[in-house]
Design a protein around this nucleic acid. Structure first.
Length: 969
RNA sequence: GCCCGAGUGGCGGAACUGGUAUACGCGCACGACUUAAAAUCGUGUCUCGCAAGGGAUGUGGGUUCGAUUCCCACCUCGGGCACCA
């Protein structure tokens, strides 16, 4: 018997595949195409760790299956090689990034190839290759020519110690990633890309793509679309207006002050009006100098009133004070807000700190829809002003409650306000009438009310009560007897705060309980308006538009998304291909001069002034203007490393094209011809890229679509994500923790096929999984088992000698073998599981099949071959090796995916379970699809079932077709 | 603080649309083969109980004939966002 030797097998077939180009994707084919994509890696100096290949293998399995299903498959690979680690390495060692990159990509390529991933290596790309970044620069210039790439002063993160600008991702907890110094904000001219121009489409078009919901959600949150209103407040006795943005125009009548961002331009214009200018100026300066860390640590809101300035609320012409505060951001909305402390958490905190008034204008509403207190549909509502008294006994710390005798109704003391009566009087009167307590004092009027709609069971009418809430305390426990009328209705009970929680049965009970716990509660939800003139009693959500129009405001949409800071003062990135001419201003580098290649420099360190090291090469920087021939300088900023990855999937379709970034024909073939519903068929990547890379590349793609350079509105039709592989201990694999597992070792000891199977078996593909080297042996045993079955089948074949005519393989097993049935079920399961990326359960099913095949003493060769085929995407080397020993000429990896036989999958006899009161008591075999009544009869007469029924009466028998019978007694 | 995701044996995990909870794998125990070991194969392996039977899917409630699955509240862990009006 031949031993399984993964080393020779894997080497042999990998070189066969390379020689025969079996994974080569032709762009000219009549077959339907499938474009599968994984995120190309950044080739770090550490080489691959076992986490890297998880997505490669997952998509490889899908690609291999698609190939076997007859698709023309494009599954490419490349390197996203611009980036900081390489540059930092260059700074430290002086070795050229180009050379380091070459070395690293060689390692990554060798390692990836050793896993037998079916990439089409003829399409390999590298973002640092001038023939690639020529087109990155070219696309940038299209942005520039359309005015979407522009220079602007922008705040950047600045490390005062290293004297360099840092990208957001280089700032960790407000500190410089490299030296640990606190970063500060510094204004600098930066290149920007106007992604905000596409914000709405980036949000809306998520409806067109097949992404996981959570990916769509986090993109939507990141884009942060919100519909609201812009409303203008006049400044009293001054010819300026304050424009605020709000999503809650309905709360306009509750505005008690207005806040501007300290950076707001109006602040300077109002200088002459402000009586405390020196204080204001001082505050503006403190905010300006605040570092990110200080801002993050100190969440307490601060601000200064602009004394002498009053804003006029357009809704009621009331004058309200104007403040500046750093909780208002200059970049969002209009940089100014109307503060409604009663209905906004932040305004509330601020108002509490500075003692600003609170005015409630939205009152919650509760509608009883269940039980006998549910509102009756056909009755009109009788409106009542009412009170709800929260009475505490300070001696016992309990609350006065009433419990109705004829209804299941528990609540507080409530009652209607009589004509001309003061609500507090009402409350005192009701407390006395309902409970007899004589000496009660008001301790707090929270100026809070809520609406409750219910059916009044005593008065037999629909009530719409507006309950005003008051807090009382007993002065003493002196109590008169309650009238017979009242005591017939309800009794008096005292409850603790905790008891109240479950005691109240009225619809607003939970809310009341929360209110008692937090009398300063502010309500941020929707409800009915109050103190809002003609809008009183209207549903707040429905008045937003009306109120906006009422004050001459505008309905607008705002986004959280900000324009993309696109320049880095770094060496190792694509030079921005723009020339700064003294006469002509910013001039794009002419197409014929692209790419602007990175020159060689002596030092890779950024300059002291914060400029990129390129600024130090005067020979490169100083140039003649391509337009006027005059004196000019090159841009020395480079692009961020998101640039190259924003369009790489397009280049894969046509890697060698020198005239275009990719030909129209190839793009049409691989992305599809229709604007909607096309793109890369399946893109798998990490969750960490959902808001940056994924959004950025969608933005670039849409821009290119508008230029009619790509055929589809979206780059990716379907997106899935893989979970990380964590090191032992459940933490991220990292060099510093020493828990990095190198795939080379695993491949050497166990083989690529074992590694592949193990990584796919480790757990659900989308979830993080903990690497455990001890468990790999299971995958290896499975492969060896398959090998042994192969040896057995070969021997079987040999002993029979010749093939019997008419029966392929010639060794047809007895009809009673269970294998064909199991095989067909397994084919079905594996086919479906691969599509859903449930690789772990697919492998589990194949393990079961393998165990059965090994046990069986006569396995049909054709059955075994089918098994090999469905296993091939997971373990391509070993399956191909066995396949070829079975005298198959064509490679298994381009053979046909097996179909399953529907008839074989159906069981004729099936086990069903009999339950009595939901507990399993017996099992029985029945024929599939037998008549319901027959099964029920069988079940209730089963001996072990009878034992449990005893002499009890059978109330109900539930039969779930072909599954179970439940007898309820 | 807010938004997502997840809590199932000693461990990784399975369970389709509400229908036998713990498939498959690792580990462990015992047995077979072997001079022996490894490898392989077989049997067992949630828990209490001699058994009959009972109890377990983070906790507490609810809906249901029946809940890992649906609803409510809470706890723990992981990830993201962080004053976005």
């Amino acid at each position: 018997m031949k031993e399984y030797n993964h080393k020779t097998i894997e080497k042999k077939w990998q070189s066969e595949w390379e020689k025969n180009k079996i994974y080569f994707a032709s762009s000219k084919s009549k077959k339907s195409k499938f474009y599968g994509l994984i995120e190309f890696p950044y080739p770090s100096g550490d080489g691959l760790h076992v986490g890297h290949p998880r997505p490669y293998i997952g998509m490889d399995i899908i690609s291999r299956k698609k190939r076997m299903e007859g698709y023309n498959v494009l599954y490419p690979m490349g390197w996203d090689a611009f980036g900081l680690p390489t540059e930092n390495y260059a700074i430290k060692t002086g070795i050229q990034p180009k050379i380091v990159t070459k070395k690293n990509t060689d390692t990554f390529r060798r390692q990836t190839k050793s896993l037998g991933v079916s990439f089409d290596w003829s399409r390999e790309i590298n973002t640092t290759d001038p023939s690639y970044y020529k087109w990155t620069q070219w696309i940038f210039l299209q942005f520039f020519k359309k005015g979407l790439a522009y220079k602007a002063k922008s705040e950047i993160n600045w490390c005062p110690k290293d004297k360099i600008g840092l990208a957001n991702e280089e700032v960790v907890d407000g500190k410089c990633e490299r030296c640990g110094a606190e970063t500060i904000k510094k204004e600098k001219e930066q290149w920007m890309l106007a992604i905000t121009k596409y914000a709405d489409r980036l949000d809306k078009d998520l409806d067109l793509v097949d992404y996981p919901e959570r990916v769509k959600l986090s993109q939507r949150n990141w884009i942060g679309k919100s519909e609201g209103s812009e409303i203008e407040f006049k400044v009293k006795n001054f010819n300026e207006k304050i424009k605020v943005f709000t999503t809650r125009a309905d709360t306009l009548f509750g505005v008690t002050y207005v806040v501007l961002a300290p950076e707001h331009e109006l602040v300077q214009k109002l200088k002459s009006q402000i009586s405390n200018w020196s204080e204001v100026e001082k505050y503006i300066n403190t905010v300006k100098n605040k570092s990110d860390l200080e801002r993050a640590e100190n969440k307490e809101k601060t601000g200064v009133e602009l004394k002498g300035v009053l804003a006029i609320n357009p809704a009621n012409d009331e004058g309200v004070p104007v403040w500046i505060a750093d909780y208002v951001l200059p970049h969002y909305g209009t940089g100014a807000v109307m503060a409604v402390p009663a209905h906004d958490e932040r305004d509330f905190l601020f108002s509490k700190k500075y003692n600003l008034p609170i005015k409630r204008v939205v009152e919650p509403i509760f509608i009883q829809t269940e039980g006998d207190g549910a509102v009756r549909e056909n009755l009109p509502f009788i409106k009542r002003n009412a009170i709800c008294a929260i009475v505490r006994n300070p001696k016992t710390d309990k609350y006065l409650c009433t419990s109705w005798k004829n209804y299941h109704m528990h609540g507080l003391v409530t009652g209607g306000v009589e004509k001309g009566e003061d609500p507090i009087e009402t409350a005192l009167r009701e407390i006395y009438e309902e409970t007899g307590y004589k000496n009660v004092k008001l301790v707090k009027d929270p100026k809070f009310a809520l609406h409750s709609q219910f059916y009044h069971r005593v008065k037999k009418e629909n009530r719409w009560a507006r309950f005003q809430y008051f807090f009382f305390e007993l002065i003493d426990e002196e109590q008169d007897t309650i009238s017979d009328k009242e005591s017939a209705l309800h009794e008096v009970v005292w409850k603790t705060k905790d008891e109240i929680k479950t005691f109240f049965t009225v619809i607003e009970g939970q809310f009341t309980h929360n209110f008692i716990n937090n009398p300063n509660y502010i309500y941020t939800g929707d409800g009915l308006l109050h103190n809002s003139l003609k809008f009183d009693d209207l549903e707040s959500g429905e008045t937003r538009k009306e109120i906006t129009e009422f004050v001459g405001g505008k309905i607008v949409t705002k986004f959280k998304l900000r324009d993309w800071v696109f320049s880095r003062q770094r060496y190792w990135g694509e030079p921005i291909p723009v020339i700064n001419c003294e006469k002509c201003g910013l001039v794009p580098v002419p197409d014929k001069n692209l790419p602007v290649k990175l020159p060689e420099v002596k030092s890779y360190k950024p300059t002291d002034t914060g400029e990129s090291p390129l600024a130090g090469i005067s020979k490169w920087v100083n140039i003649k203007c391509p337009k006027c021939g005059g004196k000019a300088k090159r841009e020395t900023d480079t692009m961020p490393n998101w640039a190259g990855s924003s369009w790489y999937y397009l280049r894969y379709t046509d890697v060698k094209n020198k005239k275009e970034f990719a030909s129209k024909a190839n793009l049409k073939y691989w992305l599809g011809n229709k604007a909607q519903g096309g793109g890369v068929d399946w893109y798998n990547g990490g969750m960490e890229h959902t808001t940056l890379h994924l959004l950025y590349s969608r933005f670039w793609h849409k821009f290119l679509y508008d230029l009619k350079l790509v055929p589809t509105v979206e780059p990716y039709k379907k997106r899935t994500s893989h979970g990380m592989i964590l090191g032992e201990g459940g933490v991220k694999m990292s060099k510093s923790l020493g828990n990095v597992v190198n795939p080379d070792e695993i491949v050497k000891i166990y083989g690529a096929d074992t590694l592949r199977v193990y990584e796919m078996f480790i757990g659900p593909f989308e979830e993080a999984a903990v690497w455990n080297t001890d468990s790999i042996i299971g995958a290896r045993r499975f492969i060896e088992k398959v090998w042994r079955i192969g040896e057995k089948v070969l021997k079987q074949k040999n002993s029979f000698g010749v093939t019997l005519p008419g029966v392929l393989g010639g060794t047809h097993t007895a009809a009673n073998s269970s294998i064909p049935k199991l095989l067909n079920k397994t084919i079905k399961k594996v086919s479906e599981d691969i599509e859903a990326m449930r690789f772990n359960t697919a492998i589990s099913a194949m393990m079961i099949l393998a165990t059965e095949m090994e046990k069986s003493n006569n396995v049909d060769v054709n059955d075994f071959k089918k098994f090999l085929k469905i296993l091939a995407p997971f373990a391509p080397h070993v399956t191909q090796d066995i396949w070829s020993s079975l005298k198959e000429k064509k490679d298994i990896n381009i053979s046909e995916w097996p179909k399953y036989d529907e008839k074989l999958i159906k069981d004729e006899e099936i086990k069903i379970v009999v339950q009595v009161n939901g507990k399993v008591r017996a099992e029985m075999m029945i024929e599939v699809d037998v008549d319901d009544e027959k099964v029920k009869n069988l079940a209730k007469n089963d001996i072990s079932v009878l034992k449990f029924i005893g002499d009890k009466e059978i109330k109900k028998i539930i039969y779930v077709k072909n599954r179970l019978v439940n007898i309820v007694v």
